[in-house]
């Protein structure tokens, strides 16, 4: 690395695990500052500092959540204009995408969505994306700084900074009269929020997915044994056997660490969400199911027979559970 960038911004909605992953990735680019939408309590600031943030911007108003993405994006733009960062990292997700897209337009800056890796060389930021339903890895260089990068959750690990710093915190909120706000700070007229399911658990890097309704109880048991989440194919979510947020695939979630598929054929759109998982295990009664081609271990058999007993190992077999498989957050 020939030149050390001045700073990297990180936007974050509270300190969820993906945020800590962002800070970890940002440390490799420069000196990270964190942007929090909402209140930054002392505890939040301390945790952000532990992961390397030296500055925390609390962007908020008491009814923060009702605002659409424009004021959030405008706040990030103002911070970027004042601090001239090499990169702005945001967690991929509905709100992250909305904010990042607007920030890129306003700064006329290069944007790389859904990156799995980010690096800097001589002041130029590059990032790797998985494209075309997971079949190719594309590396892109940002030609107009700052690089606006949205990072896939679970693609990188969160590690505390070697030397924990203390961060100073500062509050801000754009005003409607500023030129970037077009005379308004739009909010949702009706906004209702509710938990989307009793157990979304998508901070978990692993999943046990099943296509069959009957299998859900065994899936959950196996998932619990693995410390993983329960997933599903679109066949299952379309039939409302499981809520949509459990869907794995191109229009669902991505699984990073261990994936056990029971009764799932392996359509290309489903593979998009799991083929980069470090370990893939497949149970299917059809030996020709395409998913077997990418399985590290596969059992040709009936999932109703295989799944219930799959988490009970024979005496003496196996090693200790690795730290990487941390229990789910929720």
């Amino acid at each position: 690395m020939s030149e050390v960038p001045r700073s990297a911004e990180t936007t974050a909605a509270g300190v969820r695990k993906p945020t800590l992953e962002l800070l970890t990735a940002a440390r490799a680019l420069g000196e990270p500052a964190a942007v929090v939408f909402g209140d930054a309590s002392d505890q939040v600031v301390a945790q952000l500092a532990e992961y390397g943030a030296t500055k925390v911007y609390a962007v908020g108003s008491p009814d923060m959540q009702a605002f659409l993405s424009l004021p959030k994006a405008e706040a990030v733009v103002q911070i970027a204009q004042a601090s001239n960062p090499v990169a702005i990292l945001v967690t991929s997700g509905p709100e992250g995408k909305d904010v990042a897209a607007r920030v890129a337009v306003r700064l006329n800056a290069g944007i790389i969505p859904d990156a799995t890796k980010v690096s800097v060389d001589g002041g130029t930021v590059s990032a790797v994306q998985t494209v075309f339903a997971g079949r190719f890895q594309a590396t892109s260089q940002v030609l107009r700084a700052p690089a606006v990068v949205t990072m896939r959750p679970n693609a990188t690990s969160a590690e505390a900074a070697p030397a924990s710093a203390s961060a100073s915190s500062r509050s801000m909120w754009p005003s409607a009269t500023q030129p970037g706000c077009q005379g308004r700070l739009p909010r949702a007229q009706g906004l209702q929020r509710g938990p989307n399911s009793p157990m979304p658990r998508w901070s978990s890097p692993g999943a046990v997915a099943s296509a069959r309704k009957m299998a859900s109880a065994s899936s959950r048991k196996t998932a619990d044994a693995l410390g993983a989440a329960v997933g599903a194919s679109r066949t299952v979510t379309d039939q409302h056997w499981a809520p949509h947020e459990l869907q794995v695939g191109q229009t669902g979630k991505t699984v990073a660490l261990v994936y056990l598929a029971a009764g799932i054929s392996g359509a290309i759109q489903h593979r998009a969400g799991m083929q980069s998982s470090k370990t893939i295990v497949v149970v299917n009664k059809d030996a020709k199911a395409p998913l077997f081609q990418i399985a590290d271990f596969g059992v040709v058999g009936d999932l109703h027979a295989v799944l219930p007993a799959s988490s009970t190992r024979s005496p003496g077999a196996g090693a200790d559970r690795p730290d990487a498989l941390t229990p789910p957050e929720h």
């Binding site: 692993g206 693995l226 261990v258 370990t279 295990v281 149970v283 590290d296 271990f297 059992v299 040709v300 058999g301 009936d302 027979a305 295989v306 799944l307 219930p308 007993a309 799959s310 988490s311 009970t312 190992r313 024979s314 077999a317 196996g318 090693a319 200790d320 559970r321 690795p322 498989l325």
Partner: peptide
């Protein structure tokens, strides 16, 4: 799966430390 599929699967998962 000849009846030992589940056990072999469990051993694989245990071997990887899961």
């Amino acid at each position: 799966d000849d009846g030992t599929g589940a056990a072999q699967l469990a051993d694989f998962l245990a071997g990887r430390g899961f």
